[in-house]
Design a protein around this nucleic acid. Sequence first.
DNA 1: CCCTGTCATACCTGGTAGGTATCAGTGAAG
DNA 2: CTTCACTGATACCTACCAGGTATGACAGGG
Lengths: 293, 293
Amino acid sequence: MKYGVAVDTLETRELRYFTAVAEELHFGRAAERLGMAQPPLSRAIQQLERRLGVSLLKRNRRGVSLTGAGEVLLQEGRAALDAITAAARRTRRAGGADRPGEPRHRLVLAVKAAAFHELLQKLLDAYAAEPDAAEVEVLPSGTCEQEEMLRDGRADVALMHAPFNSLAGFDSEELMTEGQIAILPAGHPLAAHKTLSLADVSDIPDLPLARWSRHGTYPPGPGPEIHDQTQLAQLIALGRTVAVFPDSARAWLWAEHAAVPLTDAPPVVTHIAWPAHSRSLALAGLIRTATQL
Amino acid sequence: MKYGVAVDTLETRELRYFTAVAEELHFGRAAERLGMAQPPLSRAIQQLERRLGVSLLKRNRRGVSLTGAGEVLLQEGRAALDAITAAARRTRRAGGADRPGEPRHRLVLAVKAAAFHELLQKLLDAYAAEPDAAEVEVLPSGTCEQEEMLRDGRADVALMHAPFNSLAGFDSEELMTEGQIAILPAGHPLAAHKTLSLADVSDIPDLPLARWSRHGTYPPGPGPEIHDQTQLAQLIALGRTVAVFPDSARAWLWAEHAAVPLTDAPPVVTHIAWPAHSRSLALAGLIRTATQL
DNA sequence: CCCTGTCATACCTGGTAGGTATCAGTGAAG
DNA sequence: CTTCACTGATACCTACCAGGTATGACAGGG
């Protein structure tokens, strides 16, 4: 009996296999995705179920579906796999930094592409002036992708916009709060208003709200599909759409744009966020700098 | 070349091995703790370092110490191992619950032993009255151990006392806020005061503050070492110590005790907290019940 | 009724994890 | 200076098991 102890442990391989099957709901496709043959995959899952003493998949005629325990393992397994790859990435990033003078840890800061201009600039400048500042790599991320990047170790720290980003699972500090504005074509009648409400801009007949891409998919609606800010700026300038942004977006407005404050939009809070278990000195320095801005 | 792809992945075994060595700082002892011989352990760590392309340990004459990258891997690896065992535990707990009627997920609620009496009672009663309530197992935990229990899957949800527990890394909802009181022997001169300050109780000559155990160790100081509330209650009754508690501790005071509000003690906020990635319906129900108390 | 698509089973093979024996370096003690 | 004690590394071997191929069992659809 080699097992019988340590049944509360899973192997990385098992997590990867199960996740693939649970996502594909098809052993053949999952095996293909994993770059292996189907039979060993079937067997591995069976062994996993036997070891855990739990049935994870319902093998129906024509396909596979998850049991309750399977759903739990999919959730928890993804989190665990993220933690594992994060460990590998961060370790590798910290490596090689031992010999040349200081342990000059490189920090990766995830930032929503084309946001936080001013704040980011100030932060980087202030931090670079610190005596023992680490090198900071700014990693542009797609819409609301920062959470993933922190979780899987691509980034060490991120600037986030509550309530758009979820701070759940991270440590964070509040940096600033701002209102939101509607960005309209300069010539539009509504652009003349001193203020607007969300209701005012959410159904302007000729100006549907733009829809941002998130992981390649778009929320439903009539508006144009957008995946970068320049694109959006152009569509607004052309009088084809309207968008709602935090106040600091004024920094990149064009002459053809008009900004009108929204009275009832929730305030946007910018946070600096990082994995709760982080203990890096370099990170601590960056956070200190940020909160003292 | 079998590797060359997927270098950003670590095996559970490798994480366990490295963690053991990093904690013991001694290959022999680590191997013993892992129940294996020393040579394969040495080799495994070497392979790990080669795969990551990073040196993790400094092999000095007489023992081993961690490099910067090693420190990072120890931190991140512990988090990953916790996530892995949490996945196994929670999956197993969810198992077998598929067939009998509803997927009757069992929830484990971690509670600091002998705290939250009233609130806990109300919560359990209210939740049990819900139509599709899961079975809730109350898991008593030592001082400030709830975080670990959530992290490694022994618990699904916890009641925590900010600022004593750190909510970092979890999702949480605030349940109640209360002041703190000093609990003194009834006959003591200070017991006659209407209010006290922290300074007043922190150095009463004849009543040193009690020191709570945390993971078997005690903070330094002159006071008696305490590891359960009954013990403490008795020592206070005997006039040997004084303690500071949230207001709700009045529920378990003895006749020989006197409670005096503290004016400058930070308020204690009771939270219900859970892993941020949790998606369980049963958990959501419990949280909803808690916030509506 | 056959054909197709699905997952499971049977059997084989190679890589590798882990064991034992031993080496090699270093500090302490005599 | 020599020797001993204690450390981690190396050499070599074996057994296990992960993964491959071939095939079976079973269900639906034409």
